[in-house]
Amino acid sequence: MAGSEFSKETFCLMWHCYSPGISKQQVRVNFQSKFNRKSHAEHDVKIEELWRGKLSGDVTLYNGMKFRLAGMSEDAEKAPSIELDIGLTCYRDFQCTNYSSESERLRSDGLRDFNESQAYMSDPLGVSAILITSDDKVVVEKRSTKVGEYCNMLDLPGGHAEPSNVPGWKQEYEGNVQCQDAFLSLKSSDIVNEIFDSIVQEVVAELNIPRDQLSEPHLVGILRQMLSFGRPSTLFVVKAVDIRENDVRRMYGEGGEEQFESVDIEFVSLEDIQCGTWRSRSEQFTPSAHAAFYIIAQSTKATATED
Rank of each mutant, 00 (worst) to 15 (best):
N98I: 00
Q25T: 09
G255I: 12
H16V: 02
V27Q: 03
D307L: 05
R244W: 13
L154C: 08
C179V: 07
K187F: 11
N63S: 10
T145W: 07
V200L: 12
R224F: 10
I130Y: 06
D181S: 13
N30W: 06
A119K: 04
T97D: 11
D109F: 02
Q25H: 09
G168Q: 15
Q225N: 13
D247P: 11
L184C: 09
A205I: 08
S4H: 12
D197E: 14
E283K: 12
T60L: 13
S19Y: 05
S117M: 05
A304K: 08
Q32T: 10
C179Q: 09
R281Q: 11
P124G: 01
R279H: 11
V237F: 01
T89Y: 00
G110F: 03
A70I: 01
D155S: 10
H40V: 02
G253K: 03
M226N: 14
D109M: 07
R143H: 07
M226T: 15
Y91D: 07
A129G: 13
T10K: 15
L61R: 01
D135G: 15
F67R: 00
I22G: 05
L125P: 03
E194G: 06
N208F: 08
G148C: 06
S56W: 08
K78E: 07
Q178A: 12
A292Y: 12
R249H: 13
D190A: 14
S117Q: 03
L154I: 04
S282P: 08
Q213H: 13
V177F: 00
S215E: 05
S56L: 05
G57L: 04
S188L: 09
R112A: 05
T10M: 15
V268R: 00
G255F: 01
L270S: 08
K34S: 03
W51M: 07
G158Y: 01
